[in-house]
Structure formats: structure tokens, C-alpha cells
Amino acid sequence: MHIDLTPEQRAIDTGVREICAQFDDQYWTDCETHLRFPEEYYRAMADGGWLGITMPEEVGGSALGVTEAAIMMHAATSSNGGYSAASAIHINLFGPHAIVVHATDEQKKRWLEPLVKGEEKACFGVTEPDAGLDTTSIRTVADRVQGGYMVRGRKMWTSTGQVADRIMLLTRTTPKADCRRPTDGMTLFYTPLDRNKIEVRRIHKMGRNAVDSNAVFIDGLFVPEADRVGEEGRGFHYLLDSLNPERILVGIEAIGVGRDALGRAARYARERVVFGRPIGQNQGIQHPLAEAWAFLESAYWMCLRAAWLYDNGRAAGAEANAAKFLAGRAAFDACTKAVLTHGGMGYAQEYQVERLFRESLLPRIAPVTEQLILSFIAERVLDLPKSY
């Protein structure tokens, strides 16, 4: 068994880091402070061809796997930008997967080429305020009308909605009570974000403020039938194709955040002199940081293990969920220890670890909670009875 990155995968890591090196701490602080989308970074990643890393070659992509996408996103988050760097481009990697698998050739060309070129941005309208992770209980409705559908409803935590041109929208076309299974009767659309019919209201949040999150209100949005992905009523099943890649990517992005924080803490510990010696000479500083490294390293390889399984057509549900779980905890632990290593200066924006600490809470609660992950593993791996 050989566990290492290939030369091609190392080249991905190097190439992404070279672009990210153009955007320093001050750039990300300014974007965070002014609630400004990192447009220059987004443009640089698009020009470098990275937005299409998992997209088919016929629409301008590289047709690479989740493993390569994970390596790319780890490089992005560990190079100053944190989750703002990840979230600015994240949807290009997992969001359009339903389009890649289930859309027509005409739809793929019309929708994916602008995404790959960075000419259009997309947002993801699935989560709702009253449904949360119980996706089968969404209330956004798409009623049949001549030539298409009329949509009304609400979405929550829709990232990049302030700058998006299109929205991936999950709706109910058949009431849940009328379906044989609760996962039936939902339909997926990819359509222009018409701001005359859609209000996008920014949510002020704890961190990752360079990339907006929003409450979305839809009132009388007409969606042509040509903007429906696949068959009516099969939308939920199409989204399942992207769940494991999303968990893997969120996990390895968290590792990048944690490793950036850990690197900053180690540098500070080498340079900060107290009582005539660097604080990093004290085991009280060394041991927590060394422990954080061990947790991050183990979670990193779990992420790549899950990505390898997915790319090779193997069952990856348990590993993808475990990877996200372990990575979220390891990143939070590393960022917490980084702040504590800096002492009082860890609370100051100047050293950046407070920003990374705030962002490190995100992968512990999104896109799926730790509790649901543990319930999934208990049921599917340990063969225990379903608890909810």
C-alpha cells in the first residue's frame, strides 16, 4: 500500500498555492471587514482554470475527481484565506454535480461553461428555516403553469446569494402527504436569480464574512421547463449524488483552516520570548500543538481515503461522514490552541488566529451536524436501530 500524493496531485497543490500567495492577510481582513466578496481571488482562480476541476472536458473542465478537488481546496484554505477562500469557489465543485449527471447536453453547455469560465456565479437554495436538515419537509412549492412552473417559498443559509447570477433550487412539486416516499415529489431547477421576484437578505454572522449567507424569499418566480434538472419529482435523489463529495470537501477545507492556525501558532511560539526563553521551548506550549498536529494529520488522510473510495466507485458514505466529523473537531481544536498560544494577542485581529477560530466552528455544524453523522454511522456501520 502506497499512501502519498502523485506528482500530478502535488502539482495541483503547488499551482493553487501560487495563486493564493497573491492574496495576503490584509486582503482577507479587508474583505471580511467590509463584507466584500473576494472578486479578485475568484477571478484569479477562474483564470487559472481551477473552477472547472471536476467539470467535464466538453464544457471546459478538467474532469478530475473529488480527490483532486480536495487537494485544491485544502491548498486554498491553508493559504491565508480560510473558509472565505473556500466558500467563494466551493459550489463549483459539488453544487453542479446533479447537472453533470442528470442534465441534457444542451443544459450542460448552457449552464456549466459560464461557471467554469467564472462568467457566472451560482448559489444553492435547498435549506429552509422550518425544515433544516429534514429536507423532505421543505415548503417551497413549484406549481405547474403554461411553459414551466411558478415558485414561491423561502430558503435559508444560501451562500453567495448577494453576487449570484443563478440559483440551484429544490422545490416540492407534489405534496409530501401525496407521495409514496417522503423523498419523492421534489424537483430540482437551475435558473436565473431574478431579483424582481427573489429577495436576498444578508444574514450577519460570526465569521466567513467575505462570503455572504442569506435568507431568500421567493414570490411568484417563473421557471421555464427548460431550467428543470432531470425528471419532475426526482430532485432529492439527484442531490444525493453530491452529498458525499460535499462532506469530503468541507472536511478537508477545515483541515486547511486548522493547519494554517497551527502554523501561525508554531511560528509565534518560536519567536515569542518570555522569561528569557521562547515560549515554544515549554512543554506546556509544545504538547497541545503537537497533539493538534496529530489530530489534523489523521483527519486529513481520512478525507483522502473517503475521496479515493468515491472516485473509485466504492461506497463512501461512512468514510465521508467520518472525515467531516473528525476534520471539524480537529480544526476547531487546532484553532482554539492557536488562540491560546498567542495569549492576549490571540484575541487581536492582527495575528489572524481569531478569524480562523471563528471560522473553525462552521464545519462542526454545517452542512450536517455531528449528531446526525454519529447517528448515520451507528445505524449504517454498527447496525444499531435508527434513533430518529
Results as ranks from 00 to 15, higher is better:
residue 23 F to Q: 07
residue 335 C to P: 07
residue 207 G to T: 13
residue 47 D to Q: 11
residue 229 V to S: 08
residue 22 Q to N: 15
residue 241 D to H: 12
residue 282 N to R: 14
residue 315 A to I: 09
residue 108 K to M: 08
residue 351 Y to V: 10
residue 194 D to S: 05
residue 206 M to Q: 15
residue 79 S to R: 05
residue 285 I to Y: 14
residue 366 A to C: 08
residue 340 L to W: 02
residue 363 P to Q: 12
residue 339 V to W: 06
residue 332 F to A: 12
residue 294 A to E: 09
residue 283 Q to E: 08
residue 174 T to K: 15
residue 388 Y to P: 02
residue 34 H to Q: 02
residue 34 H to D: 01
residue 345 M to A: 10
residue 253 E to N: 07
residue 364 R to I: 15
residue 193 L to G: 03
residue 260 D to M: 15
residue 46 A to I: 09
residue 287 H to D: 13
residue 42 Y to E: 03
residue 14 T to I: 11
residue 342 H to Q: 09
residue 271 E to T: 10
residue 116 V to D: 02
residue 148 G to N: 10
residue 231 E to Q: 11
residue 43 R to V: 09
residue 293 W to M: 05
residue 250 V to I: 11
residue 253 E to I: 00
residue 341 T to M: 04
residue 102 H to A: 15
residue 240 L to S: 14
residue 160 T to Y: 07
residue 28 W to F: 08
residue 246 E to T: 13
residue 147 G to L: 08
residue 88 A to Q: 11
residue 203 I to P: 10
residue 373 I to R: 01
residue 64 L to V: 01
residue 231 E to K: 13
residue 77 T to V: 14
residue 321 N to P: 00
residue 255 I to P: 03
residue 94 F to R: 00
residue 223 V to S: 10
residue 298 S to V: 05
residue 245 P to F: 06
residue 94 F to G: 00
residue 100 V to D: 09
residue 131 A to T: 13
residue 194 D to Q: 03
residue 350 E to V: 00
residue 325 F to I: 00
residue 77 T to Q: 13
residue 8 E to A: 15
residue 119 E to R: 09
residue 56 P to N: 09
residue 82 G to E: 04
residue 201 R to C: 13
residue 244 N to E: 05
residue 186 M to Y: 00
residue 147 G to D: 15
residue 277 R to F: 01
residue 385 P to N: 11
residue 240 L to C: 14
residue 26 Q to H: 12
residue 47 D to G: 04
residue 76 A to D: 02
residue 198 I to R: 03
residue 12 I to V: 15
residue 248 I to Y: 01
residue 305 R to H: 09
residue 36 R to M: 04
residue 149 Y to L: 11
residue 329 R to L: 13
residue 273 V to Q: 03
residue 150 M to D: 06
residue 40 E to S: 07
residue 226 A to C: 06
residue 183 T to C: 12
residue 336 T to A: 14
residue 229 V to K: 04
residue 192 P to S: 02
residue 5 L to T: 09
residue 227 D to T: 11
residue 85 A to V: 06
residue 299 A to Q: 01
residue 337 K to H: 12
residue 57 E to G: 11
residue 110 R to L: 09
residue 345 M to K: 10
residue 279 I to Q: 01
residue 178 D to R: 12
residue 75 A to M: 11
residue 78 S to N: 12
residue 346 G to P: 07
